[in-house]
Structures are given as C-alpha cells and as structure tokens.
Nucleic acid binder design. Structure first.
Lengths: 232, 232
DNA sequence: TCCGCTTTTTGCGAAATGGCAAACTCGGAT
DNA sequence: ATCCGAGTTTGCCATTTCGCAAAAAGCGGA
C-alpha cells in the first residue's frame, strides 16, 4: 500500500477543480509519486502511453523530434499542469518526449484509470476539455506567430511567454526561473541558435535583457512587449 | 416548433458517437438549421460565442486575422465536423472567423446548451476531448512544419492534407473539391501567394499538379508525398 | 586551480524568400 | 460577344535568415 497522499496536493490543480473530497481521494488512491532528476525523460516520443501525470514541483520541457533529428519544443510543463494525457485523446503512444529541465516531482497514474476517473467525476472531463482547449489556443498563437512574424518578434513573444510561466522578480529584472539555452529558444521559435544569439546580443546592448549561460533575465519587459507587438 | 429532424443527421458525427437515441433526440430538439451561402461568415473573430455548430454539407474555412491585417487559415471544416465550440473551452468569444467557401448547411445550438448536453450524456465530453485532442495534434504538426521545413515542403504537406480532407478522384488526378486560391495556400503555410505560385508552377511543369483559377488537381500524389517527406 | 566540455558569440558568404511592379489570363456578368 | 475584375504568373532586387567555421567564454568537476 503506497503512503497516503494529502488531498491538498491535487485539490488546487485546475484539472481536478470542483471535484468532491471523496473523488479526490479515489484519484489519489491510484497515484504514485515519481521523482525526476534533472535531465530525466518522463516518457519518450513513440513509446506506448501507459501513464499520465501531474507535475507537483519543478519544470519539464516537451520536445518533438523530426525524422532528420531536428527538435521542436512543444511546450513547457509547470507545477500544477497535467501532461502525458495522450491516451485521453485516444492516442496509443506519446507524440513527444518530456524531460525534466530541473529536478522535479510528479504524480503518475496508469492511463487505464482515466476512463474510470471520468465516469466517477464527469466534471473532470470538462476540465480536461478546457485544459486541452487552452493548449489548442496556445498552439494557434504559435502558428500565427510562425506564419506572420519575423524572427525577432517571435523570440520576443517566446521570452514574454517564459516570463509569464516562470518569471521570478529579482533586483536586475525578471529571471526565467529554469535553465534555458539559446538552442531551447531557437526550438521554441523555429529558428537557429545563431540567430537567437544575434538577436539577444542586440537586446543586451539595448538593455532589454541580460543573460549568461542558460540564464535569462528580462530587464525591461515593457519595451520587450512593445517590440513583440510592433507590426513592423 | 421547428420541423422535426432525423437522428441520422447527427448519429454518425464522431462527436455524437455512442450516444443513445433518446439523447440524440434531445440534442436535435435544440438544434436549428442554418443555410450558409458561399462567402457567408458563420461567426466573426471577437464576437461573443453564442452558438456552436455541426457542418452537414459544404465546406468552411476558419481564419484568424492579425492586428495588421494578415490572415492565417486555422483549419478547414468538412461535413461531420463540429465547430465554434469556443465556449466549451471556456472562451467567451470566437477566436477566429468561419466562412463558407461553398454553399453550406449547418446545425446550430445555443452555447448555453453545451453543459446540459454533457450532463445528460457524459460520453459527449469524452468525444469532444478526443476531437479537440486531434486538433491539438494537427496544430503541433503544423508548428513542426513551420519550424523545420522550407516553403516547398510545407506547401506539399498542405496540399496532401487537402487531398485527404476534400480529395475527389477524377480522370486527371485528385481534385480538391472546393475553391482554393494561391492566397489560401499561402495562408495555410505561412508564406506569400507569390512564392506559392512559383512553387506550383514548377510542380505543374513536372506533372505533379494541374491547376486553374481556384482549382487544384493533384496528378501524382505519390511523388508529391516523397517531396513532402524528403528531409533535404 | 586548471582542464575540458558545453554554450555562446561572431564573421562571412550563400540561399531562400519576400516585396514590388507589371503583365497576363481566365471566368462570369452585362 | 465583350468587358471587367479577381486571380495568377513572372522578373528583378532587397532583405532576412541560414549555414559553416572558428573563436571565445563560462561552468563544473578533477
């Protein structure tokens, strides 16, 4: 018998919102805890989708790799997010690889439990629909940016998104609170690390950002925002 | 009292799959029929999401317009698809404009009925989740293509997608069964109508496609597929 | 403290694509 | 049958972005 988990662990996750205490307990009953050292893959692209997860602590990146080895960052997973719900969308395997970018902690459930959870608590299905709907809108936002914006604005938008997801206020500005490389940013914006480097070096000179290896601080979010929106 | 609609109208739509006859009747009870002349907008980007729809006949395109007037084709709606379900994803307004590209026929429901439908038939929520999940995967496919492929391959992929959605076999090849302009294809692939024109002119010379104004015929789907996949 | 490896920067030339302008071509309306 | 206009093609040049190569700079571990 696994150790008893407290309801407070999941009660505030948006996906479990509005569920009764009994239902939450039933869900927790089936959960196992998963410790994820930095660099660990939680699941691999193409592997059977045997489990789904909720992130309690840490940060993951979800990456798709093309046949010729190019990588695309699909999204970042923040605490409170669920991920790996391929099966709920009737996929049998994971469409991407999820990797811990810092040491992380997640809950895991066997995919087979999903239907039971839904049956027990239909509100869960509506919450999941909302969650996936939000991701769909985010994806459309990215498609719009990739289709209509040049590189500099795309990088600006990506950075602002990181600020919202993982920004931590410091004296110098807003720190992206997990390691991010130029390569990562390139894979988020459909460009190359070289171009990202050039863009960010220019911004650094203008005092918009400050960065060292794997670390990015946005010093002037407002000017960055203006730059991201300027339609020219 | 609206005219009685037959269950067979919606029984085979994937979203209503596995619903009981009684539930289907209850759903149909609330539906109204909407005739959509070519060029009509079913709803406009930014308008309150008061209704959702199922397409019975015809074809729509869903378009997002940026602040500076550029357009992006989000997707095409085919018979059997539901669309305008912004409200189910907890959005209050439509994120895009849906326009009939040929004369079309749709069922419409007030958005407020969605929750009642779900409560009555929870399987509907799971079906909707699957539908939105599929769209999310499609969106990720496009993001991957926009991020990693050059224009020619993106156009090839877009064309192959149109073949799958609306291909009709003819003597000369597979006809895309609704009007498509170079501009449309450009808005599906994040490029310009000029570049699309150049690409397709080259393909025409190679015998891959044949096209006249607003009409595209894929003469050699296999070679087009090879071209779309070739990782160089 | 020094070494080694990853990450970042930078220069330079090439290639892809965009932007503009103009001509052209159909198809449908009058 | 003719005209009009949306849609398409094409040439030319500008610009963005990539790709390759090499150097520089940090960071972490030995």
């Amino acid at each position: 018998m696994p150790k008893r988990l407290d309801r407070s662990l999941i009660r505030d996750l948006s996906i479990f919102r509005s569920m009764s205490d009994e239902d939450l307990d039933a869900v927790l009953e089936m959960a196992s805890v998963r410790q994820l050292p930095e660099g660990t893959a939680v699941f691999d692209q193409g592997a059977p989708a045997t489990e789904f997860f909720a992130l309690l602590h840490g940060r993951l990146k979800v990456v798709q790799t093309t046949v010729d080895g190019q990588q695309v960052v699909v999204r970042h997973v923040s605490p409170g997010d669920i991920f790996g719900i391929a099966r709920a969308m009737r996929r049998t395997d994971y469409p991407a690889t999820a990797t811990a970018v810092v040491e992380s902690l997640a809950l895991a459930w066997a995919s087979s439990h999903w239907e039971g959870f839904i049956a027990r608590s239909p509100v869960l299905a509506m919450n999941a629909l909302q969650t996936v709907g939000q991701r769909l809108q985010d994806a459309h936002t990215r498609i719009r940016e990739l289709s209509t914006e040049e590189v500099e604005r795309r990088v600006a938008h990506a950075l602002l998104r990181l600020v919202n997801q993982a920004g931590r206020k410091t004296e110098e500005g807003i720190l992206i609170d997990f390691p991010v490389t130029r390569q990562d940013i390139a894979e988020m914006t459909g460009t190359t690390l070289h171009t990202v480097s050039r863009v960010m070096t220019a911004w650094e000179a203008k005092g918009l950002v400050a960065s060292t290896r794997k670390k990015v601080v946005v010093k002037d979010p407002h000017r960055l925002f203006v730059l991201a929106e300027k339609p020219e």
